[in-house]
């Protein structure tokens, strides 16, 4: 079966000359829950931003759903981004706007600038936004200001916003790094749900191996911008752990 995402020999050099990704290759198949691990600064966020082309690779190719998206621009680029939802460590909601509005912004790519800027979202769009809020269990907060919600709730709004795009894939860049352990699991379970029930492929950066073992169907590890491990979560032995995180590292658990 053709993979949903194929990354081949991907390299990215930042304008200041720093090589954040070096010759990275991997495939992602439909329905996978792929977790990316690695030390801080290993290039995980850079990889995510390259996949939905917030960044442009310096070398290599990215093929998404059979189409080469490595250097697309303009309308095709926006179409590519629209089919990939993105979730961030700091939620990145529009703080002053309502929860419902924030979810509706997931549909911006389907509207003309003028129509969206004058706030003319259709009633179907509103219904759909409410349904997405319902999926993440906070439909009752729809009218509240986004910054009135707790961190975990804000991250669920971000998931609803991503769902609004009807994405085939979701990128989650350390989605639980600023949440407490219990809330972390709740957010991860929503990601798991959209992965299993809605068939959305997920790529997720995580720091805690216990979360990796619990949610990942497959794992890749980056070190200094290079891909050094690819396999099942249970294949991350103590030896691999030390290779990935360095000899000094000790595993901490989050339950």
């Amino acid at each position: 079966m053709q993979p949903l995402l194929r990354v081949e020999n991907l390299s990215l050099t930042y304008p200041n000359g720093y090589r954040a990704l070096k010759d990275v290759s991997f495939d992602v198949h439909r329905g996978e829950f792929l977790v990316v691990i690695g030390l801080s600064g290993s290039g995980k966020s850079t990889l995510m931003r390259t996949l939905n082309r917030l960044l442009e690779p310096t070398e290599g190719t990215i093929t998404y759903d059979g189409r080469d998206v490595t250097h697309i621009e303009g309308e095709p680029l926006r179409k590519h981004r629209a089919q990939i939802g993105m979730i961030f460590q700091h939620f990145n909601l529009i703080r002053r706007h309502s929860v419902l509005a924030n979810v509706l912004y997931g549909a911006l790519s389907t509207m003309s600038a003028l129509k969206s800027m004058t706030g003319r979202f259709t009633s179907e769009q509103r219904q759909k936004a409410l349904r997405n809020l319902d999926i993440v269990g906070i439909a009752d907060k729809a009218e509240q200001r986004a910054d009135a919600l707790s961190g975990g709730q804000q991250q669920r709004v971000a998931i609803a916003r991503a769902l609004m795009q009807e994405p085939s894939m979701v990128l989650a860049d350390e989605p639980v790094a600023s949440l407490d352990p219990a809330t972390s699991h709740s957010v991860m379970q929503y990601l798991e749900r959209i992965n299993r029930e809605h068939g959305v492929t997920v790529i997720c950066n995580l720091h805690f191996l216990s979360l990796v073992r619990r949610y990942a169907t497959r794992v890749i590890a980056l070190k200094g911008g290079e891909l050094i491990f690819e396999g099942k979560p249970e294949q991350i032995t103590d030896e691999w752990f030390r290779t990935i995180y360095g000899d000094e590292a000790v595993e901490v658990e989050i339950r």
Binding site: N52, L54, R78, K79, H80, R81, A82, Q83, I84, G85, M86, F88, H90, F91, N92, L93, I94, R95, Y105, G106, A107, L108, S109, A113, S116, M117, A158, R161, Q165
Partner: peptide
């Protein structure tokens, strides 16, 4: 910059990104 990135990632146009983020 976070919200700018988030709205850009939804596939919104430049004008929309500025207006909404």
């Amino acid at each position: 910059h976070g919200p700018i990135e988030a709205i850009t990632a939804t596939g919104a146009s430049r004008t929309q990104v500025i207006w909404f983020s």
